[in-house]
């Protein structure tokens, strides 16, 4: 993954509920960058992430990715971990992970379980997990499936300090291999932020 990646937004706008949440936003992100999205509540941080993930549709402007896989769309090269964890409470930790790795097109592996220290919980049903453990499981998805861009919405919520360290080190490895991380957060991510996009400043 040493190719040069460049994620560009050109005058992007997005409307939600009849209101322009993001107006004429432009930025450029290169590989190896950790980008922090900041701004008050309702400034459009989540909207921007969902926009990049292809879940929202821009009402104006253009998003482009240079240097990525040529035949894959931007969302297909992204990981998105949002507010909700996308976990099935009735399945076990391992089943949940296997389902997503399978769905997202990778071989099953145990590395995911190691990534956030969930090995001991592998065969427990998700409904018995605490909020922080669920968060860790959701983040574990990042590890086995290689995607150049990580979109993280408040990734640190509910994590203890040990898991925070794990998250930072994973991000560190990802960035060192040429990935991009875009995180909406108010907290400290444990590694140096290379770029900050501040939203919602009128």
């Amino acid at each position: 993954m040493s190719k040069r990646l460049r994620l560009k937004a050109d005058n992007v706008s997005c409307e939600r509920g009849g209101r322009m949440v993001i107006e004429n936003l432009s930025f450029e992100i290169e590989n190896g960058c950790l980008v922090a999205l900041r701004g008050p509540n309702g400034a459009g941080k989540s909207t921007l992430l969902r926009l990049l993930a292809g879940l929202n549709v821009p009402s104006g402007g253009k998003l482009t990715l240079e240097g990525g896989a040529p035949d894959a769309s931007i969302p297909e090269q992204c990981h998105y971990v949002g507010h909700s964890d996308a976990l099935k409470p009735a399945l076990t930790v391992r089943e949940n992970l296997d389902f997503w790795t399978d769905f997202l097109g990778e071989e099953k592996s145990n590395s995911a379980l190691e990534g956030f220290g969930l090995r001991d919980l592998a065969d427990d049903q998700v409904m018995f997990l605490s909020a922080g453990q669920k968060r860790r499981l959701a983040l574990s998805r990042l590890i086995p499936i290689a995607r150049p861009i990580w979109l993280l919405d408040e990734p640190t919520v509910g994590l203890d300090s040990k898991s925070l360290d794990r998250l930072s080190s994973h991000m560190h490895v990802h960035l060192a291999t040429g990935g991009i991380v875009i995180a909406a957060t108010h907290a400290d991510l444990g590694i140096a932020v290379s770029q900050t996009i501040t939203l919602g400043v009128a």
């Binding site: 993930a53 297909e76 996308a86 976990l87 997202l104």
Partner: peptide
């Protein structure tokens, strides 16, 4: 639970 988000991106 947000699964649809991830599925839509797959």
């Amino acid at each position: 639970d947000g699964s649809l988000d991830v599925m839509a991106m797959g």
